[in-house]
Design a protein around this nucleic acid. Structure first.
Lengths: 72, 72
DNA sequence: TAAAAATGTAAGGCGCACCTTACATGTAAG
DNA sequence: CTTACATGTAAGGTGCGCCTTACATTTTTA
């Protein structure tokens, strides 16, 4: 799953540990998601989206659908 | 995870088996998701969103974020 | 340069998403 | 009534998302 989570996190001035605490997972989970080792669950993706106040599709690209359709 | 998948599916004239085939899972997976027994993975949620050409947040409500923010 | 903070890797465990198979129920058509 | 179809439930198995602990590496700060 292609993601720009790492860029968003650093732009927000958050460490991996900061973000992990905010979304209620371990730092390992953040590392795995940022480095494409794991896809997050939908609920976790939603918690991440809430931190940045962005639609989920902006943070995790939907490979099955045109990104232009994100804002319908 | 609150969802209106069942309504969307029936409005589209799809059976559970139809939808399951389109998104590449078993019918059991569709039943479990429609009846809130399971949350879909992010990737599966994206495949479902692609079928209906809708943003994921429209099909599965993000309980951690205002729905108004879906279209940012 | 030394200490501290942030990032990264490794290994083993657990729960759940999804699987398959099988059977029960409701509904509509012949 | 019977056949067919859609839906639902049940039971057991597999893979992976997330866990914890521990240690190595890189970057920042004093």
């Amino acid at each position: 799953m292609k993601t720009n989570l790492k860029a968003l996190r650093t732009e927000a001035g958050l460490t991996q540990a900061d973000l992990a605490a905010k979304i209620g997972v371990s730092r390992q989970a953040v590392i795995a998601i940022e480095s494409d080792k794991h896809d997050p669950s939908l609920d976790l993706a939603y918690r991440i989206a809430a931190v940045f106040d962005l639609p989920v599709e902006v943070i995790f690209e939907n490979p099955h659908r045109s990104s232009a359709a994100t804002t319908e």
